[in-house]
Simulated assay, not measured.
Amino acid sequence: MAIFGLWVINKAGGLVYQRNFADGLTQMTSNEYLVLAGTLHGIHAITSRLSPTGTSSGAHVIEAETFKMNISLTATGTKFVLLTSLAEPSANTVLQKVYEAYADAVMKNPFHNPEMPIRSEGFDIRITALIGTGHT
């Protein structure tokens, strides 16, 4: 069981935070991460419109052969994406704690603009304490 990475995507689909925690993910350039975040933002928007039984908040889990993407959408449209192993049981709990760290360390900073990259040492420290190396 492992947590491989964390992405924070703003309401416009821009990647504002990306961090890898464990071996297993292919290393990509900043531009490749930006393209993937924008693509995921589009997929999330499409899945929110596809519900046959009314409204939907979009995809919460996208599962591949070797990993899962766990997605949490906030009321402001910010998406938190946790890349995990298939058997990771704590993804939703970790996402909730990441959101709490974001609210405390990032959003309470009066100089932070939600559309800009997250540059907060306090947030990084809390994420490291929460996720560490990615192995749970």
Rank of each mutant, 00 (worst) to 15 (best):
I131L: 09
A12L: 10
V94Q: 01
F21W: 06
F4V: 00
T66W: 07
T93K: 05
L82K: 00
I127G: 02
L130Q: 08
H135S: 14
M69C: 12
K97Q: 08
F80W: 01
I62N: 00
Q18G: 09
I46S: 06
M1T: 00
A22W: 05
E65L: 10
V106F: 00
V16F: 10
S51G: 09
F4Y: 11
A105M: 07
I62E: 00
A105E: 12
L95W: 04
I131H: 00
D124M: 03
M116A: 15
G54V: 09
L25I: 13
A75Q: 11
S57L: 12
F123E: 01
P114F: 12
T76M: 09
H60S: 08
F111D: 08
F123P: 07
R126Q: 15
V16N: 11
F80A: 03
G5R: 02
S30F: 11
I131C: 00
Y33C: 08
S56T: 06
H112M: 07
I71S: 06
A2K: 00
G77P: 00
S56H: 05
I46R: 01
L86F: 07
T84V: 02
N113M: 14
A59N: 04
H112R: 01
H44L: 13
T128C: 13
A105Q: 12
L25E: 15
E115F: 13
L130M: 12
S48T: 08
W7K: 02
N10Q: 07
T66F: 06
E88V: 01
L15N: 13
A45E: 04
S30H: 15
N92W: 02
L36T: 13
N31A: 14
G77L: 04
Y99E: 09
M28N: 08
T47I: 04
I62F: 04
N10H: 07
P117C: 15
G58E: 04
A129F: 12
T84A: 04
L73W: 00
G122C: 08
E65C: 06
D104K: 10
L25V: 12
